[in-house]
Design a protein around this nucleic acid. Structure first.
Lengths: 222, 222
DNA sequence: CAGAAAATATGCCAACTGGGTAATATCATT
DNA sequence: AATGATATTACCCAGTTGGCATATTTTCTG
């Protein structure tokens, strides 16, 4: 068995809900210890600057900084704390925003206390968990990612030089050769040379395809 | 308690491992029943055409069709069955490929039988679960997605007409106006008119930005 | 140090692009 | 019948792009 208790923060604007968690969670698993709870994300962020928790249960509908922004801010401060979104919201936007903000799990509030306790334990070990009712959103996302996948690139590097990478990035940003030249403080001709090399290395014929291809690639692989 | 047993297929080329699962899983949770196991993905796919399981434990390193392709094929046949990747591989590529192939969970083989039983139950209910050691890969992916997020678009539609959408798609495919004209059997001038309208509606100044923006958008939202 | 790779730069040219303006045709809605 | 949205085509123009050939300087690497 575990010897260390899992230290939990709760961010939730309803007092009643906070009390419920304090009551039910340790009952389901004595290793779970709610050490602090907060009405607002701001309060939690402040507390985190003193002392971190292992796991944070985060509501989304909060006064002031909402749960998504709060998650983002906390994740920026601390990349180890595990953040579980615990909410009744289940819209695609909120789920995706939460995940991109750095949440480790997304649970709906009608989850049973036993399940929540299990999820907390699992997430505390580092797992990533999504409620059944919102898992499809992530799966859809992965499906859409797949359509962007460039098969013939698998395992390839393009061997772009540092300079070429800079230029490519600016192409993706929609800059013209002249703008790129100005920003890199080199001549317009040099930019053209770089662009030509990029097109050749990416095996495309124009900058649009270069931009599209590089977006697709950087999305899927490092 | 549950009244129905969870019916499980196992796809794994090592007999010893299959035997281990048959032994340990029901011991940890009597609701788990391994009804069939297979040495190859092909065998499992064939069996699925007769009768589906609730959950499939899928190895990745299989002879013939590998686990990723197998997952993809099974997912195409049946969108309800829950597929848990159970492997010792932990490379980014394999994790992402598995998820985009339609896996519902990704576990590493040294998972304890108790945890595996818990994951199977959770996933059977529809949850999405990733092993702690590979969760970071998904989180990284979400982070990268975030950088593609276009905030000022939230909730906006661009009101592109059907024709403009066709053109935009071809822009993203890297086609020139002339190629687009040829493919749509309209004049080069008409394409220019459409492109002009697209640029205005997307509030961008050139086709590269139009392509990039539309990729970013379709990725994040529907 | 020698050779290779990368970054820098120039010139020319044909093709492509985007802005502006204008006109006609079609279709659904009012 | 009139209106508005969409689709279509044409023309001009300035600016951009990509291909090609070439060349110098810098940086890296063995």
């Amino acid at each position: 068995m575990e010897n260390k208790k899992i230290r939990i923060y709760v961010v939730e604007d309803y007092m009643l809900t906070r009390i419920t968690y304090r009551h039910t969670l340790p009952k389901n698993n004595p290793n779970l210890e709610i050490i602090k709870d907060f009405e607002t994300a701001e309060a939690c962020i402040n507390a985190m600057q003193q002392e971190s928790a292992d796991v944070i249960l985060m509501d989304l509908g909060l006064p002031g900084i909402n749960g998504i922004e709060g998650t983002h801010k906390i994740r920026q401060m601390n990349k180890d704390v595990k953040i579980i979104i615990l909410t009744s919201h289940d819209s695609d936007d909120e789920v995706l925003a939460s995940l991109t903000a750095g949440a480790n799990a997304y649970a709906l509030k009608d989850i049973t206390p036993e399940n929540l306790a299990a999820v907390i334990e699992s997430v505390n070990k580092g797992a990533f968990w999504l409620d059944p009712r919102i898992a499809r959103i992530a799966l859809n996302l992965f499906q859409r990612l797949k359509s962007l996948h460039v098969d013939d690139m698998y395992g390839e590097k393009f061997n772009l030089t540092a300079r070429e990478n800079e230029v490519l990035q600016m192409i993706v940003d929609g800059k013209s050769n002249t703008e790129i030249a100005k920003q890199m403080i080199i001549s317009h001709n040099t930019v053209k040379a770089h662009v030509g090399n990029i097109l050749e290395k990416l095996a495309v014929t124009d900058r649009v395809q270069a931009a599209v291809k590089s977006i697709k690639m950087t999305l899927i692989r490092n």
